[in-house]
Design a protein around this nucleic acid. Structure first.
Length: 108
DNA sequence: CCATTGACTTAAG
DNA sequence: CCTTAAGCCAATG
């Protein structure tokens, strides 16, 4: 389980800076599985109960809160984001292009 | 074992 | 940005 794909996803998600967000595809690309963005989503689905995996900082490529329905309640994801200073309007992250954090570029 | 599903992405129109 | 279509692959039925 050490080099599990899921574990790698969690490792990257934990590195997302507060107030920044990234996409499933960006994470998948960073892990060398560019075409497996869906599996990143699966990993997040399994991340429930893990101590510090900020799943709310991971959205789809246009900054929409596609995973909000999978939280305890659909408002939790938006609430957590706004708590970190990320503004959300109509289930979409405001100024998404600015807020976007690409592990491939920023983590290096 | 085959079929369907899905917290996705890209390309084309 | 919307729609349609196709690719992707683990999990589930």
């Amino acid at each position: 389980m050490d080099t599990d794909f899921f574990q790698q996803v969690y490792a990257v998600v934990r590195l997302i800076p507060k107030g920044r967000v990234t996409s499933y595809g960006a994470i998948a690309r960073y892990l060398g599985a560019a075409k497996s963005s869906r599996m990143v989503g699966w990993a997040m689905n399994a991340s429930h109960g893990l101590p510090d995996v900020p799943a709310h900082r991971v959205v789809n490529r246009i900054g929409m809160l596609s995973g909000k329905a999978h939280f305890a309640n659909p408002f939790e994801m938006q609430r957590l984001l706004e708590l970190e200073g990320v503004q959300v309007k109509e289930d979409q992250i405001v100024e998404f292009h600015q807020r976007f954090w690409d592990p491939q570029l920023e983590l290096n």
